[in-house]
């Protein structure tokens, strides 16, 4: 299997481990990753400019399409944004088919022109996969279970789904948005034991870390209380931004006191494979 690897902006500097372990897993599953000159997924620009955010995504999607590859990303925000853009694009298309709404057709034309400057074109056929859905659906959880070589000790793990992949379901189609399951199931096949806690679908606070740090950290620290209550050993993430938030130094210190380790799913799986 061959996929275009979309690491997202943050992995290279902030979370090298995620990239390394991700690649290692894919190697063990004999998935070939192709690195294309992708740019920002467009998610940060969503707060400032609709056109910029759309074009950033479209350029990535068109680039992958040029090589006839589907995109896989370890980051939930990138996943959500690319899904969002691809859906928006299709809706732009639909509106044109239905009624000649001038503004939207102009917008679509503008994106097409800009893509054409780089000899790109997007027909809407790039599929976007997140690490978790890829493992669960494409590799298959039963298949993956067979490939586990070292069963890990039965430690307790709580999971943190990322918001942007989970919601809105109508855009991302990730998993049941109210009671997601796939992360827990993936954890369980490694031998670790996923336990319930109240925060698995709640935001980590990272999006407002820069603008209102205290509020962001309050949200983060509430996770620790919940994790202690669930008697967890690990808080497991599968999103670059969530893990970056958990890597916040003050939080790390608190975690150490309670013997809780925020950890990346890829590192867990890499050890088990």
């Amino acid at each position: 299997m061959k996929l275009a690897y979309f690491p997202g902006c943050k992995i290279d500097f902030y979370l090298k481990d995620y990239g390394i372990s991700f690649k290692s897993i894919m190697k063990k599953l004999s998935v070939e990753l192709v690195e294309l000159p992708f740019n920002c997924c467009g998610y940060p620009a969503r707060n400032t400019d609709y056109e910029v955010c759309m074009f950033s995504s479209l350029r990535n999607l068109a680039l992958a399409r040029k090589y006839k590859l589907d995109i896989i990303t370890p980051c939930m925000c990138c996943y959500g944004q690319l899904q969002y853009a691809s859906l928006q694009w299709k809706q732009l298309g639909r509106q044109i088919e239905n009624s000649a709404k001038k503004q939207t057709s102009e917008l679509k034309q503008k994106f097409n022109d800009l893509l054409a400057q780089e000899n790109l074109f997007w027909d809407g056929k790039t599929e976007i996969k997140h690490l978790l859905t890829f493992l669960y659906n494409d590799i298959g959880i039963l298949n993956l279970k067979k490939k586990i070589k070292n069963r890990l000790p039965e430690k307790k793990v709580v999971t943190q789904y990322g918001c942007h992949a989970l919601r809105p379901f109508t855009v991302t189609g990730f998993d049941n948005p109210h009671a997601p399951q796939i992360f827990e199931e993936l954890i369980n096949i490694t031998g670790l034991k996923s336990v319930e806690w109240s925060k698995n679908t709640e935001c980590c606070g990272n999006p407002i870390l820069e603008n209102s740090k205290t509020l962001s950290l309050k949200i983060l620290n509430s996770k620790l209380d919940a994790a202690i209550k669930a008697k967890a050993d690990y808080i497991c993430t599968a999103c670059t931004h969530c893990q970056m938030q958990y890597n916040e130094l003050s939080f790390q210190k608190e975690c150490k006191k309670h013997n809780i380790t925020p950890t990346l799913f890829t590192q867990i799986l890499d050890n088990a494979l």
């Binding site: 400032t48 918001c163 942007h164 989970l166 919601r167 809105p168 999006p207």
Partner: peptide, 29 residues
């Protein structure tokens, strides 16, 4: 509007299926 985490909890839970988060993001833009 500035504090919104864009976590889409509201949008997913809205019984009226209003795109609350998307509207807030639009306000930001």
């Amino acid at each position: 509007v500035q504090n919104c985490l864009t976590c889409y909890s509201c949008q997913e839970s809205c019984p009226g299926e209003i795109k609350v988060t998307d509207i807030i993001i639009e306000l930001r833009q």
